[in-house]
């Protein structure tokens, strides 16, 4: 494991924990797209079905368990415990527009036509676009709390760091996985606009707000 991969995992973990803590401490999930969080729970579930059949390392197994547990806890906080604070009238992105094409593409373009492999591929495609309901919510309300911006920055950085990891692995081991690579590029590109706003506003102490 190289440093980019490790920092990527760390950044992913930081994002997930920031979101959970934000909701827990403020007793509110306003500004957070429950729909994106449902998609992330689906992503982790379909990707980590190999949890018991394919052992890689204690590190991998523990991270998978933490990611899955945290994503279900987040969904529970949004739709259960703090449902009263959920922005349901702004969180209106139609997730079937992401789920259906990801599923069709996973059947058509995969490494191996087997159930686990198709579900893994589906999770990669779905993850690449799963943040869209959240970005849609931010663009609809025109602003994001600073803590939500930190969450989005950490979550976006994770796949960017993975891209560097894949570049490293390609040159050091000749390893590459086109499905993960192309999806990772798409995923990172979707954050570009946000990265720009984050660096130009949030890091200078201003709240992230979009021009009207």
């Amino acid at each position: 494991m190289n440093v980019f991969r490790f920092l990527g995992d760390l950044s992913h973990l930081v994002a997930i924990v920031i979101l959970l803590l934000k909701i827990w401490k403020t007793r509110s999930c306003s500004g957070i797209s429950g729909r994106s969080q449902i998609l992330f729970a689906i992503v982790f579930t379909t990707r980590y079905l190999d949890l018991f059949s394919n052992f890689i390392s204690v590190y991998n197994t523990s991270m998978k368990i933490v990611y899955i547990t945290c994503s279900y806890a987040t969904v529970y906080l949004i739709y259960g415990k703090f449902k009263a604070t959920y922005d349901f009238n702004h969180d209106t992105f139609r997730i079937e527009f992401l789920l259906v094409p990801s599923a069709i593409l996973a059947f058509l373009v995969n490494h191996d036509f087997s159930p686990l492999e198709i579900l893994w591929t589906f999770s990669i495609y779905l993850e690449s676009v799963a943040i869209l309901p959240q970005l849609f919510l931010v663009s609809k309300t025109g602003e994001a709390e600073t803590i939500t911006s930190h969450y989005l920055f950490a979550l976006g950085s994770y796949r960017l760091l993975y891209l560097l990891n894949w570049l490293w692995r390609y040159f050091s081991q000749g390893f590459y996985d086109l499905i993960a690579l192309l999806s990772g590029i798409l995923q990172t590109v979707l954050y570009c606009d946000f990265f720009y706003l984050y660096i130009s506003k949030v890091l200078k102490g201003k709240k992230l707000s979009l021009p009207a």
């Binding site: 990707r47 890689i56 991998n60 990611y67 993975y162 996985d177």
Partner: peptide
């Protein structure tokens, strides 16, 4: 031939 891709990342 079914190529098994090891998914060793997260």
């Amino acid at each position: 031939h079914a190529l098994h891709i090891p998914h060793d990342e997260l």
